[in-house]
């Protein structure tokens, strides 16, 4: 079922410049608080960007932002519109995978542009990247946009700068009560250089066995998730493993998984649980490629932006008793 992206040359969208229009869409769930979008719109204007709201961005149909047809329509329309230079999702949630059969791939191929989001939007990012070769962007959504200087900084580096993002730093650490996990835990040390791909684990799982299944071969894979019990994460990882998805990866970056402590989710709780850290450690110690855990690319305000398909370098080494982790995005995602 795998659609190999190897045969497809990488297509880079044009970088975002002052005066450019950004299309705001809701391919998954509606915004929790509509007014929250105003913060993002204000930030956009400060950057000289002109936000354009999709026709159905405030539609609501239960947990979906309107019906499938309308949500797909907004996406296709913004890809078609030459004036729109980037497309940003308002929020993840649920429902973007439902649209994949309704997207106009030829239209997207003919109109490469920046598309960004995370969480449920992973389905769009992976599918578009693999179907068209377009570099898509795992990054903030418009309702969790710029709410930290870290996120802001990497958004600018990823889509408003022609230079590669370069070495990824960490958010400013808290002096007391630091967030757990630390950002640079090493499960297996090593050095690697390969294109980077990934996203939210639940969505990677959802696409398994479909024509949009992730191709991880010879790639550095990054994953993250939110509010999943450890056993649920373990089940998804096992599925990917049984499908051979870890056999040929060149490196693995497990991001911060917010709310994935035993008993922290609101569903499928289980007694005698173990931490995801222990599950990952058991599975990915002595791995055939470097594996790190903790970087801020998930469901918190502090989130780097990662272009899918560009070349990255991962170094994970122990030196003099401490760990040294370098993630360098060596190739620009825009042109």
């Amino acid at each position: 079922m795998n659609t190999s992206s190897e045969s497809l040359p990488l297509v880079k969208p044009s970088l975002l410049k002052r005066g450019d229009k950004i299309g705001i869409v809701a391919p998954s769930s509606p915004s929790f608080e509509e007014g929250k979008l105003d913060f993002a719109l204000k930030r956009f204007s400060e950057l000289g960007l002109v936000p354009v709201l999709g026709e159905h961005v405030f539609d609501s149909l239960g947990d979906l932002a309107g019906c499938d047809k309308d949500r797909a329509h907004d996406l296709n329309r913004f890809f078609e519109d030459k004036e729109i230079k980037a497309i940003m999702a308002i929020r993840g949630g649920n429902g973007s995978a439902r649209l994949l059969a309704m997207l106009d791939w030829d239209l997207i191929r003919a109109n490469p542009k920046i598309i960004m989001g995370y969480s449920d939007i992973t389905a769009l990012l992976l599918a578009i990247h693999q179907k068209t070769g377009l570099v898509t962007f795992h990054g903030p959504t418009a309702s969790s946009f710029f709410e930290s200087p870290y996120t802001h900084e990497y958004f600018l580096k990823a889509v408003m700068d022609k230079n590669p993002i370069g070495e990824i730093g960490d958010p400013k650490p808290k002096e007391w009560g630091p967030d757990y996990p630390p950002t640079r835990i090493i499960f297996t040390p090593g050095r690697t250089e390969a294109p980077i791909i990934g996203g939210c684990l639940t969505l990677i799982k959802q696409l398994m066995g479909t024509p949009f299944e992730i191709d991880t071969r010879e790639k550095i894979l990054f994953i993250e998730d939110v509010s999943e019990e450890p056993h649920s994460i373990d089940r998804m990882i096992t599925q990917l493993d049984l499908a051979g998805k870890f056999d040929h990866i060149r490196g693995l970056i497990i991001g911060e998984c917010v709310g994935c402590k035993p008993g922290a989710s609101k569903r499928e709780r289980m007694t005698l649980n173990m931490s995801i850290e222990r599950i990952f450690q058991k599975r990915f110690s002595n791995f055939h490629a470097p594996v790190i855990y903790g970087m801020r690319l998930g469901h918190s305000n502090e989130k780097m932006t990662l272009p899918l398909g560009v070349k990255a370098r991962l170094i994970a080494e122990f030196s003099a008793g401490s760990s040294n982790v370098v993630l360098n995005i060596m190739e620009a995602g825009v042109c």
Partner: peptide, 8 residues
């Protein structure tokens, strides 16, 4: 959970 694997 078995989709994409040989056990599906």
């Amino acid at each position: 959970s078995l989709m994409g694997t040989k056990y599906s």
